[in-house]
Amino acid sequence: MIRALWTAASGMEAQQLNMDVIANNLANVNSSGFKKSRADFQDILYQTSKAAGTTATAGVEVPTGVQVGLGSRVASVQKVFTVGDMQGTDNELDLAIEGNGFFQVADTAGETLYTRAGALKKDSTGRLVTSEGFPLTPEIVIPQNATRVSIGQFGNVEVFLDGQSTPTQVGTIELARFSNPAGLSSMGRNLYAETTTSGTPEAGTPGDLGFGTISQGFLEGSNVSIMEEMVNMIAGQRAYEVNSKAIQTADEMLQMTNGLVR
């Protein structure tokens, strides 16, 4: 009976982590470029009382055996990199990637990080930077006398300078892609870092084979579905509830056993 207590407790613990994942998804429903996470579950050790295939009597084998599981656990929490809905903003520095790829930015230590959030700004020197002030890589600088910025679907950045009617190209946005984006390490602030399991980043121009294109004046919204997360929340709550009921039932059975009188 003690085994049932610990088995049900492992189920409650797994569902608690599942609820943490769902809560984080819902909290970021309005975060640009946010990618939802999903908890994957697996069963754990089994106690084998009788192995399948053992001999019961002469010439007779046990067909199935007796194995009792000891609960469940969360095997992984992975990011789901489906594309979110595109939201028009009419801001010339808001960019969305339609398809595969990440913007490349440099942090304060000079390390390259990756993001899908394209809400770019200009810093004091005219560089295109993220909301945290991290510049794009390769660096793109908008001249101070630029009156308008035009960013094409293939990443070419052109500006119209004051007094000029023809555009001047000041750079090209490059994207990076990974063979296993789910292996990226989430750094917060919509940033990801390369890991050994994500694979080596491959840089390329938007529109190249395997890379998405750029949409100016749009932001990629979160790929979180409120309806789906609410259903997952209800299912997780019920699973937590039924595991707690299993603990209660096991406790009552132990209480009955302890109350037996010779």
Rank of each mutant, 00 (worst) to 15 (best):
A119K: 15
E132I: 00
A117P: 01
T147R: 13
Q144T: 15
T112C: 00
F154N: 13
I140H: 05
P138V: 06
F134C: 01
A193S: 10
A146M: 09
N180Q: 10
S131C: 00
G133Q: 06
G188R: 08
R177I: 04
T137S: 07
N190T: 08
Q164P: 01
E158N: 15
D162S: 15
R116T: 04
A193Q: 05
V157E: 07
T147D: 06
T137W: 02
L120I: 08
V149E: 14
A117T: 01
D123R: 08
Q164D: 11
E174V: 03
N145T: 14
G188N: 06
V129S: 12
F154T: 13
T172Y: 00
E174T: 06
A146Y: 07
I140Y: 08
K121C: 00
P181S: 07
E139P: 00
S185K: 14
G110K: 07
N156Y: 05
A146G: 11
T147L: 08
E132W: 01
V157T: 09
Y192P: 02
V129I: 15
F154Y: 03
F160E: 12
T172C: 00
A176V: 02
S124Q: 15
Y192H: 12
L184Q: 04
L128Q: 08
I173A: 02
F178N: 01
T172F: 00
G188L: 03
A119G: 12
A182T: 14
E139Q: 07
G152Y: 03
V149D: 06
S131G: 04
G118R: 05
G155F: 06
A182N: 13
R148A: 15
T112S: 04
T195Q: 12
E139G: 01
T137L: 04
S186V: 06
P167N: 14
G126K: 12
R116I: 09
Q169S: 14
G118V: 03
E194P: 00
F160Y: 15
Q164S: 08
R177S: 09
